[in-house]
Computed example of a mutant assay.
Amino acid sequence: MDATYGAAFIGLIGSAVLYGVTLLQTFLYFKQYPNDTRMTKSIVVVLWVLDTAHLSLCTIAIYTYLVRNFDNPGALGRSTWSMNLQTDCNGLIGLIVECFFARRVWMMSRNIFLTGLIVVLACIHFGLGVLFTVEGFILVETSKFPRLIWVTSTGLGSAAAADIIIAISLCYYLTKSRTGFARTDSLITTLIVYSLTTGLITSIIAFVCVVTFATMPTNYIWLGFFWLIGKCYVNSLLAALNSRDSLREQAAPQDGTFLQLTPFRAMASSHNPTNEPSISTDPSVKNGSDFVDATHLTLAVKIQKQTISKTDYE
C-alpha cells in the first residue's frame, strides 16, 4: 500500500497544493491584466478548467480505491475510469503550454524548423497520453501495465525534450539580444533565469516519471510525480504572464535618463506667453528674477539608447 496508493495519495496532496497556487495566479492575472487579448484570456481559462478537472479526477480515483472499495483488495489492482482519464488532462495541458512557449520561440527566432520540432514533440506527448488512456481501459489490470512502458517513456520523454529545447532556444536568442547597457542586460539575464527555471522543472519531473515507471511499473510512485507535472505546466505559463509588470518596472528608465528641458521651458514660458524663448545676450543684463543670464546658462542633455522589440501581448 505504501508504494501504490500511499504514493498516489501523497501525489494528490502535492497536486492540491499546486492547484492552490494555480488559483492564486489565475486571480492575479485577471486582476492585473484585464486588457489582454481574448486569446490569452481564453488560454488561461481553458488551462484552469483542465487543471480543475484533473484534480477532480485524481480525487475521485483515490476516493474510489480507498473509501468505496475499503477492505476490497481485488479492486486495488484494477484501473478506474477516473484514473485513466486524468492522463488526458495532463497531456492536453502540456500540449497547450508547450505550443504557447513554441510561439515565443518562433517570434524570437523565426526558425520554422525549431518551432515545428517543439510542436511535433508536444503532439507526440499528447497523442501517446491518449493511447495510454485507451490501453488502460483495455488492460484494466494494473499488473499488465509493464506493456505500456514504451508509451510512457516515449510520451514523457518527448515532453522533456520539448521543454529543454524551449529553454535552450529562449536562452540562446535572449543572449544574442544583449546590448551592452547594464539595465537592458540585467533584464535579459532575468528572462534567461525564468526560461531555464520553467523548462528544467517540468523536464526533470518528466524524467523522474519515466525512470520510476520503467523500473517500477506495477506501483504508483511514478503516478505521484505525474500528477505534479500538469500543475507545473500551468503555473509556468501563469508565472510568465504575471511577471510582465515586474519586468516592465525593471526595464523602465530612471528619472533623468531622458532629455531634460523643463527648467529652460519654465523660465522661458514665464516671461513669454507665446512660449517662444527670449534670452538676453547682453552680458550687462543683471541675472535676477526677471531675466536669464545667457552667459551662465548650461544645457545638459542625456541620451539613452533603447531597443524596442515586438511582444506577443498587447
Score class of each variant (00 low, 15 high):
Q86E: 15
S195W: 00
T218F: 07
R147V: 07
F145M: 10
A61I: 10
L196R: 14
S243K: 00
I118F: 07
Y313E: 01
M83R: 10
F225P: 01
A61E: 14
R244D: 00
A300L: 09
N272L: 08
L85C: 13
G127K: 05
V208L: 11
L47P: 01
C99D: 11
D312T: 02
D88P: 13
A53P: 04
V120D: 10
T154M: 03
A182K: 13
G157N: 04
T154A: 04
L50T: 03
L191C: 12
R244C: 00
L76G: 10
M83C: 03
L66G: 02
I166H: 08
D36Y: 00
G230V: 09
S246V: 07
V119K: 03
N111Y: 02
D245C: 00
G94H: 12
T22Y: 06
F70C: 06
V21W: 09
S186T: 15
V301Q: 09
N287W: 14
K41E: 05
S82K: 10
H296L: 08
S15E: 14
A159M: 10
L76P: 00
I204H: 07
P277V: 14
R78C: 07
T189W: 07
G180Y: 05
S309G: 03
D163R: 13
L156Y: 15
F126I: 04
G127D: 06
R178D: 10
G74P: 01
R78F: 10
R244H: 00
S236N: 05
A251W: 04
Y29K: 01
V45E: 04
I60A: 09
C99Q: 11
L24F: 14
K305N: 12
H54D: 03
H296V: 12
K305V: 11
F113Q: 01
A8D: 08
A16E: 10
W150Y: 12
G224F: 07
S269Y: 11
S186N: 15
S15R: 06
L57P: 15
T311V: 13
G91T: 11
P146H: 03
G77Q: 02
A8I: 10
P277C: 13
I308D: 07
A160N: 01
S15F: 02
Y63K: 14
S280H: 04
I229R: 02
T202M: 12
Y173C: 00
N111A: 03
T281E: 02
F226S: 11
V208Y: 04
L191A: 11
M267V: 13
A162Y: 00
E141L: 14
T52W: 07
D2S: 14
A8E: 12
I229V: 15
F101E: 13
I149T: 13
L18C: 01
P34N: 03
P146I: 06
T198W: 10
I62E: 09
L196G: 11
Y220V: 05
E249Y: 01
F126V: 06
V97L: 08
